[in-house]
């Protein structure tokens, strides 16, 4: 079954979508979208290094994302312009990555695949890595869910309840680094943040609790992956961007639906 590239691609898309959605909820709740984007951009440095020294692209991307995650966690509270520092670190890494790639012959054509993903080229190993990453992220989130929520609401309240907010934040950034690393094959460094925040944003008005919102986000993510994949097949469009566009369409639909029902409720 895994010999069919269509099956592999679908499994890869679904895996990344399921992992990204609940994590994306935290990215939205905590307004970490910019951090996610800077981390994803920085991952390009890891990719270029892995191409140059011929080791796994996944490992390279994961390594650089983890460095970014560590920087942010331990830089928090120390610097007032963390946002700016993130921008500097993220985009410097990306620029350096692009320069390194230009030195490797024959890779320049491949670059597009890492920027917007190349889901049709995923190997069996890639699928395995994606599902391992998915499992790790879901386990991590499931284990720390309530603690992470409390830290999101009020770090002092979390500390008074015996939690260590710094540790919880670090767990979250590690999960984000993993999703960025496994998501690169599917939607690329430029679009992975979209797969995190768009399904989460679409499910905001569908659930009354954080848990329901996360479940709806996963469902919307999976639907976007499947529909986007099929759309790219039918219309012969690049797959990663097609998945993101389908997710955006779903976002528009839920937004319209929820504002209509709100107006309806107000009238009655």
């Amino acid at each position: 079954m895994l010999d069919d590239f269509m099956v592999r691609a679908t499994l890869a898309g679904i895996g990344v979508a399921i992992a990204a959605a609940p994590l994306g909820c935290f990215v939205v709740w905590r307004r970490m979208a910019y951090f996610g984007e800077a981390t994803a951009h920085a991952a390009l440095l890891g990719i270029s290094l892995s191409l140059m020294f011929e080791f796994s692209v996944f490992a390279g991307a994961l390594f650089v994302s983890l460095i970014m995650a560590t920087l942010v966690t331990f830089g928090q509270g120390r610097s007032l312009f963390l946002d700016t520092l993130l921008g500097v670190a993220g985009h410097t890494s990306m620029a350096a990555g692009l320069i390194i790639v230009s030195y490797i012959s024959g890779v320049r054509i491949e670059l597009m695949a890492y920027l917007i993903g190349d889901i049709l080229a995923v190997s069996k190993t890639d699928v395995l890595l994606i599902w391992l990453g998915l499992g790790a992220v879901l386990l991590l989130l499931f284990w720390r869910w309530s603690a992470l929520l409390l830290c999101t609401l009020n770090e002092d309240l979390a500390a008074a309840s015996g939690l260590n907010p710094k540790r919880e934040n670090f767990i979250l950034t590690i999960a984000l680094a993993v999703v960025v690393a496994v998501g690169i094959k599917v939607v690329g460094v430029l679009l992975i943040i979209a797969l995190l925040i768009i399904p989460a944003a679409s499910s905001r008005f569908l659930g009354s609790t954080p848990e329901k919102m996360a479940v709806f986000a996963s469902l919307i993510g999976v639907a976007s992956a499947i529909l986007g994949f099929n759309a790219s097949y039918v219309f012969d469009t690049p797959t990663g961007p097609s998945i993101v566009c389908v997710a955006s369409l779903i976002f528009l639909l839920t937004l319209t639906f929820s504002s209509l029902t709100q107006q309806f409720q107000r009238k009655n």
Binding site: V28, W29, R30, R31, T152, L153, N154, D156, L157, A160, S161, A200, A201, R204, G207, S208, T209, P210, K212, M213
Partner: peptide, 15 residues
């Protein structure tokens, strides 16, 4: 502990 405020972002549904 009773905190001063709760930062419930508008994007977070929480009863």
């Amino acid at each position: 502990y009773v905190p001063q405020v709760l930062n419930v972002d508008l994007s977070l549904p929480l009863t």
